[in-house]
Amino acid sequence: MKLLIIEDDSSLREIMLRALKGEGYVVETASTFFEAEDKIAGYSYDCIMLDIMLPDGNGLRLLEHIKSLGKEDRVIIISARDSLDDKIEGLNLGADDYLPKPFYMAELSARIKSVLRRGTASVNNIMKAGNISLDITSRRTTIDNKEVPLLKKEFDILLYFMQRPNHIVDKAILAEAVWGDHIDMADNFQFIYAQIKNLRKKLADAGADTNIKAVYGFGYKFTDNEK
């Protein structure tokens, strides 16, 4: 899988490059509109991360350019302007996703996976980890082909973990992802502990070969026991 990062800030570019390489992707970078245009013309990428605020041009015009070339490249817009207009315009122009800055690397990598999965098997909306498989459209969970009934929030938590295997997930960020913008205070995570406890028990009872490890004082790490 080959990715292109178009980002003018060198520090952010470097850490994205390092992190995505660590995930096993082939990654190239471009820092300006001009450089990016050059690379896009010459090569094909599976997914392009596009910062729309470039020093020498608007990234949205670059997106138009990519689409006008008839390329199949997936595009995730990365923007410091968390504005609805940009988001709508970007998605209308054919971007696959929109990620406002600042973002967590785990979030970006989950979005890349999701975009790439849509590319390869658009019908098949199933996530797998170990012997667990999640059907995202029908929201059904099966372990070793046996259905496990999960509550809505439990399903959301499991999905969030499975999109970020082997990453340490901050409980505050997990809470925000699952419960939306309702979590403000760092002093009340009792409800997450309870949810995770129930989820672990259900997974263990159904014989899942995965593990949700608590990382003390910080959050959780979802691992595949086979690895």
Partner: peptide, 18 residues
């Protein structure tokens, strides 16, 4: 303008942790 440096900081800390 703060968004990009914030993104850099959080991704770097995340990288170290991971």
């Amino acid at each position: 303008e703060l968004q990009t440096p914030l993104a850099i900081l959080s991704t770097r800390i995340e990288w170290i942790i991971d």
